[in-house]
Nucleic acid binder design. Sequence first.
RNA 1: GGGCGAUUAGCUCAGUUGGUAGAGCGCCGCAUUCACAUUGCGGAGGUCACUGGUUCGAGACCGGUAUCGCCCACCA
Length: 918
Amino acid sequence: MDKSYRPEDIEQRIYARWEENGWFAPQGDGAPYCIMIPPPNVTGTLHMGHAFQDTIMDALTRYHRMRGHRALWQPGMDHAGIATQMVVERLLNAEGKTKHDLGREQFIERVWQWKEESGGQIAQQTRRLGASVDWSRDRFTMDEGCSAAVRKVFIDLYEEGLIYRGKRLVNWDPVLHTALSDLEVLTDDEAGHLWHFRYPLASGDGLLVVATTRPETMLGDSAVAVHPDDERYEALVGQDIVLPIVGRHIPVIADEYVDPEFGTGCVKITPAHDFNDYEIGERHGLPMYNILTDDAALNDEVPERYRGLDRFVAREKIVAEFQELGLLERIENYTVKIPRGDRSHAVVEPYLTDQWYVKIEPLAKPAIEAVESGRIRFVPENWSKTYFEWMYNIQDWCISRQLWWGHRVPAWYDGDGNVYVGEDEADVRKRHGLADSVALVQDNDVLDTWFSSALWPFSTLGWPEKTDALAEFYPGNVLVTGFDIIFFWVARMIMMGIKFMGDVPFHEVYIHGLIRDQDGQKMSKSKGNVLDPLDLIDGIDLEALVAKRTAGMMQDHLAPKIEEATRKHFPDGIDAYGCDALRMTFASLATTGRDIRFDVGRIEGYKNFCNKLWNAARYVLMNTESIDDGKIELSAADRWIRARFDRATRDMHRHIATYRLDLAAQAIYEFTWHEFCDWYLELSKPVLQSEASSPAQQRGTRRTLIDMLEAILRLLHPLMPFITEELWEPVARRADIGGDTIMLRPYPEPDDNAADDEAVADIEWVRQFILGIRQIRGEMDISPGKALPVKLLHAGESDRARAQRHALLLQHVGRVESIEILADDEQPPVAATALLGDLRLLVPMKGLIDVTAERERLDKQVEKTRAELARAHGKLGNENFVNNAPAAVVTQERERVVEFEKTLSQLTEQLQKLDELA
RNA sequence: GGGCGAUUAGCUCAGUUGGUAGAGCGCCGCAUUCACAUUGCGGAGGUCACUGGUUCGAGACCGGUAUCGCCCACCA
């Protein structure tokens, strides 16, 4: 074995072996356990969030697989309609072409090509993360099966009246030329203006002042509204306004929607370009003037001089014209909520179009009930509030998109505009008895990506076929995802699952936090603060990192800033930490919080942990070469570490069951390093090296070393799959354990016989003894190598027995030269002191000890003890405490007082000794 | 406007049903023939944001304040 842990030598080789052997597929005949991967966007690359999420899912999957479950982690990717189409369009643009040059069919062909390339890259990245997904079941939301599921769901919902087509206002993205769902529109505060316009009354008797943030929409006004109870305008309701520039006569109407307190209390109504105005228009039967084109330029509905102008150009022109007409009252600076498309970032316009909708309320009701009843549980529980809040106020879902890449709406139109829904044209003709002579044209729209994602928990398992996989793995056990897609995805899966499978798609939803950079900023390409998980695994030098972060920027001017920040944060680039260290880091970050700051400093500690484990294994293997089947005698230390291991095992089960991988990582780290390595391995050395220990004792220790290490590897495997596999092979051989791979060995289970109070108490005493000596050594600056004579004062019977029984350990691990037991009435020498209960450990000073330093040290302890004592006295002096606190707490407090007093008197006595000397 | 979350050591974070405030990193000191310097040993470092309350007892429970963050929402 190499002296150092080198992840690059082992990880890919091991993964290939796992995969070739088909070990990721469900094994054995245990109960099923299933997790569906949230399918990553096929044209993206895996980012830190994916790696974090994959770590969690893989840990859960491996854990359950080792516990004998038929574990399925279902892999796959999402076609990500808009995002993918944008990427490919950009590639085309770089070639100087547009998608229209290719035409729909060829363009889609082109996207498929790109999908193959990009998707393969993601699959490779997934492998590098150690993900034990069942590749044999890999799926894609646009593959034949998923597409069949989409068509079936669409047709069924349509026939049930839950999908309908309607002309109404939608969020229109004028850059992408498509409708968006409410969720795809992000509203932000932006600095803007509020323009106050004068609208003259047709009677010639004055005017009304209206305010708007979008002046150009006045061209589509069809009324001015006031509040019905607003006395100022009571007389005007029913009169007409002459709409400036347009010349149209429009009525003054009364509607409760108007807030009389805001502005002038008069609102211009543009039903075709504002969601509120649309509703008012419906209520009052107002005409709707659509004044925009698909590009958000003005159409032929407006006066000629405005036709064809971009909306923002028109805005300036309108304002100028009002100014000229003397109808501009004033301009106010104003913070405006600007709706933008989440992909294009273009300002979205409310726009009147024909779209397909899902009538959502009938689907939402049982989905709400599923969470209320506990059939689905959010972890942390708090997220159910977010879910409910959205579900209670849910709006119909616009599912059609005017794109080319995606599931084409399975609807056909005849020449008269009648719509027919079916599997394909032939199916439509059959269903509706349409002769071949009737020309049919398929709807041009595709479906929202999330429509197919919503079916993921069952479409991947073969639905609508009745497959064995479906019977076995639906519903899944847990969904692991981020809170950012609770609405987009989680809620919709629940609705569709209940609707089409008659059952929830999973029983638990584990919501993890979002990975941010070291400053808490969201990682994004434009900020240049993205970390590639593979760079943390393989390492990357500074120049390459800078180049990577500044390449392909949409906004070139940001590059220098990004370069500077990168050079500051990573002056030496990024070291290669290996996958296991990265995974341990992710696990340790998996707290209940919503934001996770990824600080590269943290991963280094876990690489060291890997190295520690590696070297512990070297030590164990070196010392178990001669293991045989002879008689075995277990020492207190052997029994102690076995008991401690059981404790760690129980912790792991508990923490994994509650999705606290941070606590699980901490527990196993603490045990492996600070109990197994720091103490047990050290305690094993004297036994193996001393002539005094019997062959049976040595066998007991060798046996324990190899047994414990083998078990620790299994305990660690779900979090650190590679190093544990690499080490397990020689360890298992040495331990004479069969099996081809650690990933299919049983996970350690709690052992009711493992508790061993006697051994634990003994070793605890040994540890305290040694810690006491070390403290004297450390604070006196005595070399750790120097063996010290120790005298024991006030040694009780058990102290004497333990000192004798564990003399070997104290000598070697504590570097104690000799132990002498003083009689109680014996005059102790001037010495440095450590206390172990009633027992006083004395290290005679004779040239070793600095008197001043020792006095300072003891003073510090006295001070601490006094403070504790005072606090305890205070409590016990309080009648209320004594009367009301549980008896056990009071007793404990009394015991502490006794303890402190004893300690104090011993310390005082020792200090007097020092004074005498001075 | 409504909802949610955060505030604990220099930094990043734990803190289980209220009962002696913890870890990692960083910092200071000692140590290198020993599985591991990717190490070992010792140490320093906290008014638990503030404020009232409940309680014998509050980092934890309740009310309020401040600061920061997120989500939802139709005030032109």
